[in-house]
């Protein structure tokens, strides 16, 4: 029992450290990829190829003056970024990162909490993550913040429905809510991947994932041209950095979810061992998010609602119904 607790704590700390480092690294990758797609160089001057830019950014974020607007609700203003970061990391707790491996004679399962409702827990925690932007926008005494908070509420609430419904069909096929069961179901090579059985669900999940992580076609929460910075208007320094870490962690979580549910998870892929396979898949999803950001314009709020309620949700319901009918007969 004690070993289990200590192991869990070690795993949690490791995941916290690695993922927040990756989130910082993600900002560097994002800048570089966006720069290349716009025929620019991106960060170049701090370290080799600008690699130390994230260290410089970290120093800047930590040492920047941290101020709270005089009209703001101080307490809520201070805890809102922590909610974003905390829920993003708690959601990662139920995600199996890598296949089991043996280290110093101990079999390590790289998942913090293997609960049998894993996928719902991840979705629920990401749903709770909407309180970060929401409270941040409402606590700061700023109209743009309030608009950002209102957009947070409508966007996250609406797209949670699509995420849940789109992932329902794979759940019906696999018959379990545990992400490890999802992985084991697809252990027979590429032909077993759920994307071939549920292509529509995959596309819907990906679109809703973009909306839930506030990525570009749906980045209405903090779109500079419309609402100055949305919920993050008054934030600076490390508090703003926490929003950033939360957003990038959510991107990684969505990448893991999509790979585990639809793309075969961490099963070994041909000659590639499973660990490398899933890292490749998650990297692909991360790159896809940047790629889409460089390519597509973002949409209006009314188009966002139209897309969610009149296109994606009916498609998701039809998909679930068809899956049920096919499974019944």
């Amino acid at each position: 029992m004690d070993g289990y607790i200590i192991g869990t704590i070690i795993k949690a700390v490791l995941i916290l450290a690695i993922i927040s480092a990756l989130a910082g690294f993600g900002t560097y990758i994002e800048r570089k990829v966006l720069a290349f797609m716009q025929r620019r160089l991106g960060p170049m001057h701090v370290g080799p190829y600008g690699l130390l830019q994230l260290v410089a950014d970290g120093i800047k974020l930590f040492t920047k003056e941290d101020f709270i607007p005089s009209g703001a609700n101080r307490l809520i203003f201070m805890i809102a970024p922590m909610i974003t970061a905390a829920t993003a990391f708690i959601a990662l707790a139920a995600v199996p990162m890598l296949p089991e491996f043996t280290l110093f004679g101990v079999t390590v399962r790289p998942i913090v909490a293997d609960i049998n409702i894993g996928i719902l827990f991840v979705l629920g925690m990401m749903a709770a993550g909407l309180y970060g932007p929401l409270l941040a926008g409402m606590a700061q005494d700023n109209k743009w913040g309030l608009l950002g908070a209102a957009r947070t509420a409508i966007q996250f609430l609406s797209y949670e429905v699509v995420t849940g419904l789109s992932i329902l069909a794979p759940i019906m096929i696999v018959g379990s809510l545990s992400l490890i069961d999802f992985n084991n179901y697809q252990s027979g090579g590429i032909g077993d991947w759920l994307i071939w059985k549920q292509p529509l669900a995959f596309i819907l999940f990906l679109i809703a994932g973009f909306a839930e992580t506030n990525r570009t076609p749906f980045d209405l929460l903090e779109h500079e041209a419309e609402v100055v910075s949305g919920y993050a208007t008054e934030y600076s320094g490390m508090r703003w950095g926490m929003f950033f870490i939360g957003e990038y962690t959510n991107m990684i979580t969505i990448g893991f979810l999509a790979s585990l549910v639809f793309l075969g998870g961490f099963n070994s892929w041909g000659f590639l061992p499973g660990g490398i396979a899933i890292i490749l898949k998650v990297s692909f999803f991360f790159f896809l998010m940047l790629w889409v950001r460089a390519s597509w314009p973002h949409i209006r709020p009314d188009q966002l609602m139209w897309l969610c309620w009149k296109v994606l949700m009916p498609l998701a319901v039809i998909n679930v119904t068809l899956t049920g009918l096919v499974m019944m007969f």
């Binding site: 925690m125 709770a128 409402m138 309030l146 609430l157 949670e160």
Partner: peptide, 18 residues
């Protein structure tokens, strides 16, 4: 409880508060 109460009901209240 997480998804419906926290994610939907309370968020709706927050939206209404605006």
């Amino acid at each position: 409880q997480l998804i419906v109460y926290v994610g939907a009901v309370m968020a709706l209240y927050a939206f209404g508060m605006m």
